[in-house]
Simulated scan of single mutants.
Amino acid sequence: MAHWTDTRPAHQQIAALLRDRIMSGRLAPGVQLPSTQQLMAEFDVVGTTVQKALQVLKAEGLAVGRPGKGVFVRAQPHHSIVPAAYMPPSRTGEPYAWMPEAAARSMTGASRILEVAELQPPRDIAQALELPADKRAVLRRRLLLLDEEPAELVHSYYPADLAVGTRLTDRRRIRGGSPTLLTELGYPPRRFVDRISVRPPTTEEVLALELPAEVCVLRTARVVYSDADRPIEVSVMVKAGHLYELEYGMRVGPGGP
């Protein structure tokens, strides 16, 4: 049997183990982490190594220090996102689903428009939208927030022949979100396909999401299809990998999917 050695510094290894315990629920939200002495004994390290590991978790927002009391797991260390919840159009007059979904978790959701532009899309985006090489797309770049903290950086692309002349080109929020507007335009979302990957963040993502060091991001590339399987939107959504997880459901057997 082959053997591997973890070559990371000891404090990173300890932080990784504690992070796993937090994200799996073995260290529940709000509970106090083991004391420095307990962690020193468990991992056979000196106190400064333990303190460096705890500082990593604090910087990531997974733990908070309380002077004179200790270090505690954050009350809500990570969030579960249900992608399907954001696909249906909102009811008349209701906001984009991000806001009510946040409210259901006792949080405040918000959306900030960073850029709206008509451009030549990247090759992978053009292929997903089935655009000829000379066709352009409309980009809407947004930052989604939870309780005023950056949660998700989104790049959404739409075929220019569909988007130009509509509110998709306005640099302001769309009431009900793009699914509602696309439905109004005669292109109701019918299905979507997600591709999910994990990687180190780009500089844009580090700055926009205010990420600490040594954190990977969760990247979701989504293609949305309307009637006749026409692709109408491609979105690249990036979240902090240590704070968010995605929840999918699918029927198996008769009656689904």
Rank of each mutant, 00 (worst) to 15 (best):
I113C: 08
H3T: 12
A126I: 08
T220P: 00
R230P: 00
A85P: 00
P212K: 03
V238H: 04
S156T: 15
R222Y: 04
T169W: 01
P77K: 05
P95I: 10
G255W: 12
D229P: 05
G70F: 02
A110W: 02
L143G: 09
H242T: 14
Y248F: 15
A2V: 13
D124S: 12
L144P: 01
L114Y: 09
I174Y: 06
A133G: 01
E148K: 13
M237Y: 00
T220G: 01
T49C: 03
P179W: 07
A117H: 06
L246Q: 08
H79T: 14
R141F: 03
F43Q: 03
P254E: 12
Q127F: 02
T92H: 11
R142N: 05
D170A: 11
H11P: 01
R191T: 12
F192G: 00
R190A: 10
P179S: 09
G30I: 10
Y158S: 06
E205Q: 05
L57W: 04
E233G: 02
R199D: 04
G177N: 09
P257E: 13
R105E: 13
Y157Q: 07
T92W: 08
A104E: 13
T48L: 07
E152K: 08
H155E: 15
P83M: 09
Q32P: 00
L185G: 03
G249L: 08
L145W: 01
P29T: 09
E184H: 07
L207I: 13
G65T: 10
F72V: 07
R21C: 02
L62F: 06
R230N: 01
F192M: 11
G30Y: 11
S226M: 09
D20K: 09
V154K: 01
L139K: 06
Q76Y: 01
W4E: 14
I113L: 13
K239Q: 15
G241D: 10
L62Q: 10
D170E: 15
C216H: 13
L54A: 02
M99K: 14
V206E: 13
M87Q: 13
L144E: 08
V56C: 07
G241I: 14
R105T: 07
I22N: 04
G249E: 14
A41C: 00
G177D: 07
G61R: 07
L162A: 09
D44Y: 01
A97Q: 14
P188T: 04
Y248N: 02
A104T: 03
V73N: 02
I22C: 06
Y225G: 03
I14D: 02
R136G: 02
E115I: 01
